[in-house]
Design a protein around this nucleic acid. Structure first.
Length: 254
DNA sequence: ATGGTAGACGATCTA
């Protein structure tokens, strides 16, 4: 069973890239972030024509998350249950093919010390509370998403340039460590040690040709899921295409 | 301290 997380930076602007990739790669489940549309504007037919069921939690202009699955999708939860007051569409969870899956779009945080940064840390604390509670179900559980946090310096091309900057600051990394410390694993790091690979390259300043990237897109797995983990990786190819998202798909197989 | 690019949307905001 192949599970993918992909920040597509607008599903409507990226539709052909996405459907081409779905047809070529045939993953079982795709966890999307930054769909950037309300539910009624989601290109449902085009995705269904690729063979997928859809669960979505969208909003106008910004954010928006979705779950695509070749299997039936049940028990859909929209928003983090421990963060009911959150007005932004950044979390969706469901059960499909016997696996609980979630798509999360963690706030970017803008700059260290800003109001948006505070919101990011609150979001991470609420996410941790929910994941702690869900861990007690002892299920196969995969939480894929754009965490907007590079876990360690190995996940950063330009370590000096990003030192204590947004996406790399110590409080952000601690908030992610706190989730891992509950008992979740960063799937990619089971198979890939050392520097890289990255999952996001800024559109600005020609980051992609220089491979000046960060690994901020992760799939976290419950212990039960890690026991079934077979492989993981980043598919860099879609990042090099015309009209590419600034993020590449990150995958694992159970 | 700023700028660089992209998307939604229709002036800026977010990333």
């Amino acid at each position: 069973m192949k599970i993918v997380t992909w920040n597509v930076n607008s599903i409507r602007a990226r539709l052909e890239n996405i459907t081409d990739w779905l047809r070529a790669n045939q993953p079982d489940v795709v966890l999307l972030q930054e769909t950037k549309c309300q539910d009624h504007d989601f290109p449902l037919e085009a995705i269904e024509d690729c063979g997928y069921n859809v669960a979505q939690h969208g909003q106008k202009s910004y954010n928006g998350v979705a779950i695509l699955s070749k299997h039936p999708i049940d028990d859909i939860i929209k928003g983090i249950p421990t963060f009911a007051e959150d007005e932004q569409a950044r979390y969706i969870e469901a059960v499909t093919n016997g696996v609980r899956v979630a798509s999360v779009y963690v706030p970017n945080g803008s700059d260290v010390g800003t109001e948006k940064y505070d919101y990011k840390l609150i979001f991470m604390a609420r996410l941790k509370e929910h994941l702690a509670a869900t861990l007690l179900y002892d299920e196969l559980f995969a939480i894929g998403g754009d965490y907007n946090i590079a876990p360690t310096d190995d996940d950063v091309h330009d370590v000096k340039g990003w030192h204590e900057q947004i996406l790399c600051s110590t409080p952000e990394r601690k908030s992610l460590r706190a989730i891992l410390n509950l008992g979740y694993s960063d799937a990619m790091r089971i198979h890939h040690k050392g520097k890289g690979p990255y999952s996001w390259w800024d559109y600005r300043s020609g980051a992609w040709p220089k491979d000046d990237g960060l690994r901020i897109d992760l799939i976290l797995l419950s212990p039960q899921a890690v026991d079934r983990l077979a492989g993981s990786g980043v598919d860099r190819d879609p990042r090099g295409l015309e009209k590419a998202s600034d993020h590449a798909p990150v995958w694992c197989t159970l």
